[in-house]
Design a protein around this nucleic acid. Sequence first.
DNA 1: AAACCTTACAACCGCACTTGC
DNA 2: CGCAAGTGCGGTTGTAAGGTT
Length: 242
Amino acid sequence: MGRSPCCEKAHTNKGAWTKEEDDRLVAYIRAHGEGCWRSLPKAAGLLRCGKSCRLRWINYLRPDLKRGNFTEEEDELIIKLHSLLGNKWSLIAGRLPGRTDNEIKNYWNTHIRRKLLSRGIDPATHRPTNEPVSDATTMPLVVREEEKKDFIGALGCDEEKSTSQERLPDLNLELRISPPYQHPTEPLKSGGKRVCFSCSLGLMDGEQCSCNSTSSTAGSSNSIDFLGLKSGNLDYIRLEIK
DNA sequence: AAACCTTACAACCGCACTTGC
DNA sequence: CGCAAGTGCGGTTGTAAGGTT
């Protein structure tokens, strides 16, 4: 017996949402909060599938959505994050406040792909389109042989100790993006300034941000080039390995 | 003005993952 | 441990709007 359908398709509306449906959904979520999407449509008096309600809320009705055109800074950030993360739209959206994964995905497919192609860059690999394709160059985060050694070294695992028969331990290469770690009690580096994540990623500048950082304005020569996002020379060696 | 084409984006679908029993 | 339900994600489709012929 297979999985039951997520909703009773015979009794649900499809297609574009009406103003009345939007109002009902917003009113219900304001009163009861998000969650339990499966039971929400019935409780809110909507003839919609729970998934459809969730999508409508997340992508269109949420009050914290930015809407409007993407800025040049957002464009560049999306390109750089995509080169790091690939088609992980939800992760990319997590770095762009007020933007949704669906919005970024659509924007990528309609605008940025073309923009990169016009620059002679393959949007899938982020490499020049005229560059010969090989296994070592097709994936954004492929670790080449010489770089594997760096990884092993960074993990504190001496390769010489592992015989060819010995199986290397399974590595969890789940990547987490975070600013360089600074211990709260450690003396401050970088000219006595702490690193602000928003500023170093270019999401805010020193004046907008409450970090009071004067040296972290996007583009400033004093600011940290986090993972090479500013220079374009991606530095995944510094990505934290769990 | 009409037909056709292109673009943009909302919405759907199916699969994978997580969680609870 | 296995199963089912619930949820989230990414790929794809449908269609309205605008542009071109």
